[in-house]
Computed example of a mutant assay.
Amino acid sequence: MDLQWFADEKTEKATPKKRQDSRKKGQIPKSQDVNTALMLFVAFIILWLFAGPAIFSGLQGMMLDSLSRFLHMDVTTPNIASLFRTLTWNMAILVLPLMAITVLAGAFGSFLQVGSLFTTDPLKLKLEKLDPIKGAKRIFSARALVELAKSILKIVFVGAAVIIVLYMNIEDVLLLSQKNIEVSAVTVGELALMMGIVAAILLLILAIPDYLYQRYDHEKQIRMSKKDIRDEHKTSEGDPKIRARRKQKQLEMSMARLAQDVPKADVIITNPTHFAVALKYDQAKADAPYVLAKGMDYAAERIKKIAREHHIPMVENVWLARTMYANLQVNDQVNEEMFEAVAEVLAYVYQLNGHT
């Protein structure tokens, strides 16, 4: 029982295949705080530098139009519907560009963390998520405590941003009561934007350790046991017994082919120990000598044994044997680099056999 527990304990780093499978399922290290902070930062920067005055002017126009035109209209269903349609359309024109840029910033934050990835697996219904026992475990888990700590830090950071901006502009705040409504509105808007930018920067700083924690937690979640690694290896590479039988079958087929092809050779070229190449020259089939069979170590010894049994000449030529073994496959013709050496070997064999 103890040995089984150790075998099932998740102590090993995830294999590349495990990581790839997890990524396909959408199980990736990602901090949502990075996206949120980046979206807030971009939104407030755009408001501060470009969109703020345009949106403020647009809101002024909407308010003026509402008070000057719609205020004198009768309260009827068509008039109210027209009012809401007009206000909704005008508001959409004002904020849609800003919202589009903000969404792009969030997408860019996701791309920075996970790269290009599209999967629908996280959207699938999983009944285990409805398990109340597992839900209770998630509530009282270390991850829940981390999320609680993050929430508290966010409140502290946003509060700090408000205090910092108010403290640095305390004189303008105290003089608000002495300014007209338009100037006060501009001042409040500027202060709100500064608070937003400072808060976004602080949240970005907080998002860095959160991303590091998410990576650590992800690595912990995808850890594997020694048994998992063995099972994956068996699945990927096949059962060792089956692989052994497959190799044995391949060896038997190779040896059978050698027994069939080597007796047809004109000569066996050896190096003399490790390599053996069987050559055949048949003008009816090819313009140059071609390889009937080749082998290294055990296969080379098998070729030489078959050659001795069928009285096929064997010629020792270290360079030629190694070169042909490395550069030619079965049925390949010898190339120009080997012509001279092969011609000398064949001439010697033909002379030995009494051919003219």
Rank of each mutant, 00 (worst) to 15 (best):
A161R: 01
R257W: 00
K126G: 04
A326E: 11
L117F: 07
D74L: 13
E237Q: 15
P78A: 10
A347S: 11
E9K: 10
E232Q: 06
A105T: 03
L212R: 13
K150W: 08
K179T: 14
I93L: 14
S57Q: 14
T270C: 03
A347Q: 12
L87V: 09
Q329V: 12
F70L: 12
F118S: 13
L112K: 06
T11V: 09
E237H: 15
H218T: 00
G52Y: 12
A199E: 05
A326P: 07
N90D: 14
R302S: 04
V183Y: 10
I268D: 04
D287F: 04
A14Y: 07
V291E: 05
S110F: 12
A341N: 10
A276G: 02
V198Q: 00
L148N: 10
K234D: 02
A107I: 15
A341P: 05
V262P: 02
I181Q: 05
M62F: 14
A288Q: 01
P29A: 11
V349C: 04
A307K: 00
I45W: 10
M194P: 00
D287W: 01
N169S: 11
A286T: 00
R69H: 15
G196S: 03
Y211K: 05
E9M: 11
M324A: 08
V34E: 02
P132D: 04
E337I: 06
F111T: 08
W319A: 15
E171D: 14
N79L: 04
K249S: 11
I201S: 06
I201K: 07
A14G: 06
A326G: 02
L130C: 12
M296D: 04
A136F: 13
V342N: 03
L130D: 06
A347M: 07
P272Y: 04
D2E: 10
S31T: 09
E309Y: 02
S254Q: 04
T270L: 02
D65H: 06
G106F: 00
W5P: 08
T11S: 14
N79D: 09
L49N: 13
D332C: 02
S22R: 03
N331E: 10
E237N: 05
A92F: 11
E340R: 09
A14T: 10
A341W: 03
A136H: 12
K134W: 08
L47Q: 01
Y350R: 11
F70G: 09
N35L: 13
I133C: 13
Q4G: 13
F157V: 12
S177R: 10
S151M: 04
V186K: 09
Q178A: 15
S31L: 04
P209C: 00
R322S: 01
L112C: 05
Q178K: 08
F6V: 15
A43V: 00
M39Q: 13
A192I: 14
M99H: 13
G58P: 05
I164T: 14
H274E: 07
D297T: 01
W48H: 14
R243M: 11
P29K: 00
E344R: 08
K129P: 15
K30R: 06
T76I: 11
I164R: 06
I181T: 07
P97A: 03
G115F: 00
D33V: 01
L67I: 14
R143A: 07
Y290M: 01
T120E: 12
G135F: 07
Y167I: 15
N169M: 05
Y167F: 14
M39H: 11
A149R: 09
D282T: 04
I303W: 01
M39E: 08
A54P: 15
A105N: 11
